[in-house]
Amino acid sequence: MDSNDDRQSEKQEIWSWGAGTDGQLATGLLQDEHIPQLLPFQPSLSFISCGGAHVVALTPGKKVFTWGRGTSGQLGHGNLVNSLGPKSVDVLNNFKITNVSAGWNHSGFVTDIGHLLTCGDGSFGQLGLGDNVSQCSPVKVLHFESWHVQQIAFGMRHSLALLKGEKGDQVYSFGSGKRGQLGISNEKVKSISLPMSVSGLDQVNVGSIVANGDHSAAISDNGHLYTWGRGFDGKPGMCFPERVISMVSFTQVSLGWNHALILTEEGEALMLGSHHGVLKNHQIQNLTKHNINEEQVKKICGLNGIKVVGVASGAEHSVLTTENGAVLTWGWGEHGQLGLGDTRDHNNPQVVSMGQSGAHEYATSNVYCGSGFTFVVRNL
C-alpha cells in the first residue's frame, strides 16, 4: 500500500470464512473454511463490500483493493482472472474513492467529487453505461457526470445510486428490473442500461440505500424504511418503494435473497421474510405489520435483550455484532459461512469464536456478507 494511511494497522484484525473456491476469502487457498481464518494480510480497511464471489475493499487512504472471482471483469484489473488475495485497482490510483459496492458479478466506485465508475458484468445494463457490454476496467458512468453521487448499492443484476444536490436527494437505478427492483414503473421492466430515477422517493430525505438479490431498500434521515423489488415470504413483488410501517426508527438494513435484517435505533435486530428452509413460523415472533401485502416485521428469537450494533445478510445467512463486539450467525451453513465449524443450518443466533482471546473483548466488530461467505473487521 502506498500512503501512510494504508499501512498495516496494529489495532485491526480481518477474519473470513465460508465459501472460498474462487479466492474470495483472501486466505491464499481455493477452499471453503468452516471456522474463522485470520487473514495473512492485514491492511487497514475502512469498508468492505462482498458480492457473489468477490470482494471490494476501501482503505482509509481512499484506495481500492479487490479479490476473488474475476471472470466477468468485476475486479477491475483489466482482465478476466481470479485473484487469491487483495490486488490494487491501479486504474483508480488517480482518484480518491469514498464509496464502493460489489454486486453478484459487477462492481462500482464513487469518487470524492461524486463521479461513478463501474466494471464487470454488464449483460443486464447494470453498469449504467447505456449498453449491455461487460467491462474489465472501471469506466465512468457519464450519465452522472454533472451530478454528485454519494453512495451506491449493487444487487444481483441491478444497481442503485444515491445522488445529493440542491434539489434534494434522488435515487437512481439501472440493470435488471424483472422483480420490480428498479422502482421506475408500475410494471416490471426487463432491464435498462441508462440510470432512471426511482419513483416515490421525491419527498424523502434518503440517508442510505441497500441492494441484494432482487431486492432494493432505502432508509430516510428520520429512520423510515422503504423497500421494493421481490416480495418477502413468497409475497408479490413491489414496483415502487413502499414504507415499512413501524412505531420504531430504523438505522440500518441488510438484504438477503429471501429476507432482510433491520436494526432499530434502540439496538434491536428485526427481520422481514426468512432464511429459506431454516427459520420456521414457530421460531419467530410478530412485532407489527406494515402496508406491503400484509408482510410482517419479526423479532429474532435467542437474542434475549442483547444490544445489536450492526447487521449483515448473505444469500441465506445472517450475521450481527453486539455492543461488546461479539459476532453471532445463523441461517444456511452449507459452505461454513456461519463460522461454527460445521456445514449445518442453524435456526438461532450462535456466537462465533475468533481466536483464543474470545469474542467479547473487542470494542467494535464490523460485519460483511457475500452470497455464501462472511468477513469481520475487528478493531481492538
Rank of each mutant, 00 (worst) to 15 (best):
S3A: 13
N4E: 14
R7M: 15
Q8Y: 11
K11G: 11
E13Y: 05
W15M: 02
A19Y: 14
G20S: 08
G20I: 11
G20H: 07
D22H: 14
G23S: 06
L29K: 11
L30A: 08
I35G: 02
Q37T: 13
L39K: 03
P40V: 11
V55F: 09
A57M: 05
K62H: 15
K63V: 08
K63H: 10
F65Q: 02
G73L: 08
V91Y: 09
K96E: 12
K96Y: 13
I97G: 13
I97T: 10
I97A: 12
N99W: 13
V100P: 03
S101G: 14
S107F: 06
G120E: 04
G122R: 03
L129K: 00
D131E: 10
V133I: 15
S137P: 00
K140G: 06
V149D: 00
I152Y: 06
M156S: 00
L162E: 08
L163K: 02
K164N: 12
K164D: 09
D169I: 06
S173T: 04
S176L: 10
K178C: 08
L182G: 00
N186Q: 05
N186C: 10
V189C: 04
L194M: 13
P195V: 12
M196T: 05
D202R: 06
V204G: 04
V210A: 15
A211E: 02
H215P: 00
S216R: 01
A217V: 09
D221F: 12
G223M: 06
Y226I: 05
W228L: 07
W228Y: 08
G229Q: 01
R230Q: 14
R230Y: 05
F232G: 01
M238R: 15
F240M: 09
R243A: 11
Q252L: 09
V253H: 05
S254M: 12
W257C: 10
N258I: 02
H259A: 06
I262H: 02
T264M: 10
H275I: 13
G277P: 01
G277D: 05
K289M: 11
N291L: 14
I292S: 03
I292R: 01
V297R: 01
I300V: 15
K307V: 15
A315K: 03
H317M: 15
G325H: 05
V327G: 05
T329V: 11
T329K: 01
T329N: 05
G331W: 07
W332L: 12
L338I: 08
R344M: 11
H346N: 14
P349S: 10
S365R: 06
V367P: 04
F373I: 06
V376I: 12
L380R: 03
L380I: 12
